[in-house]
Amino acid sequence: MSARASTGRRRRALLGSATDITAILLVIVALFAILDFDAFFTTANLTNVLISASLLIVMAVGATFVLVTGGVDLSVGSVLVFSGVVAGEVMKAMGGQGWGAALVGVAVSMAAGAAWGVVNGLVVTKLRVPPLIATLGSFGAAQGLAQVITNGNDLKDIPYELVDTLGVGRVAGVPWLVVVALAVALAGGLVLAVTRYGRRTYAIGSNAEAARRAGVSVDRHLVSVYTMAGLLAGLAGIMSYAQFGSTTLSGHATDNLAVIAAVVIGGTSLFGGVGTMFGTLVGTMIPAVLANGLVIVGLNSFWRDFAVGVVLVAAVYLDQLRRRARTAR
């Protein structure tokens, strides 16, 4: 009995609600490895998978916090574009090249994203607009402003220093994009799992009124969570600009749904209170692995969207089953 309880506890600490989905990812990887080991299971190809997932990972880390509070952030893709555009304009005004412009660009992009996050947080907490609508509003507004600033034309001049490092550069063979994404995920995972900030994020999503009565400043915490989500979308904005050499105005309209799907597939509950960063990482990798592997085995990559849709619904169904089993006792 005690042995079973302790392994149960260990599994809960490690994977939590992400146990099933981790198995699914492993099965998918194994399947592609069996079908075409030489093309799929190479360092270069798996690195490509990680690169293609890196922007989503960064945004999904923020979205995990938001969903754990029981909220949602639909604005991330537009905030990404907006932040890249603002950073691009600032770097252009600084002469367009050099380390100075590059570093200022990174800082400005993150600040611009954080600013949208503050707006989202204040609209949700002070104006009491539901997160779905508040962030749908900023989804449209941020995209619109980005178009206004650029007059609808993508910015394309970015410091080479930024492209050569963050964009396409590598450290010890690992692309910068992947290093940054995994560092963000690790930091976010630690904050969520072991700190008071993370504990209160869960508590608010689980029962905001209980947290309030226990003396947690719920509104301030929520504003900070949306601000972090915005800041990470801003970071993804400068990463995207550096990677593609363009502000990709029209390239991120469905990022928000991709991010939410990844987080939810990873076992985070839409109702809040439940979720792990490890699960989010797994949930982000499933679409990325599918997209890559399906092409390698000769299937149309459009099947990815179909498969992700199925996995998403299955993940939420599992969450419902868990909740039902829990309340039935």
């Binding site: 008071r196 508590a203 209980a210 226990a214």
Partner: peptide
């Protein structure tokens, strides 16, 4: 102790006992 409990259902017993007064 309020009528509607005011616990966070997703947190464990210790986390609920220390809710808002977490030890660091």
């Amino acid at each position: 102790v309020y009528q509607d409990l005011a616990l966070a259902p997703d947190l464990d017993t210790a986390a609920n006992l220390f809710l808002g007064r977490e030890l660091l």
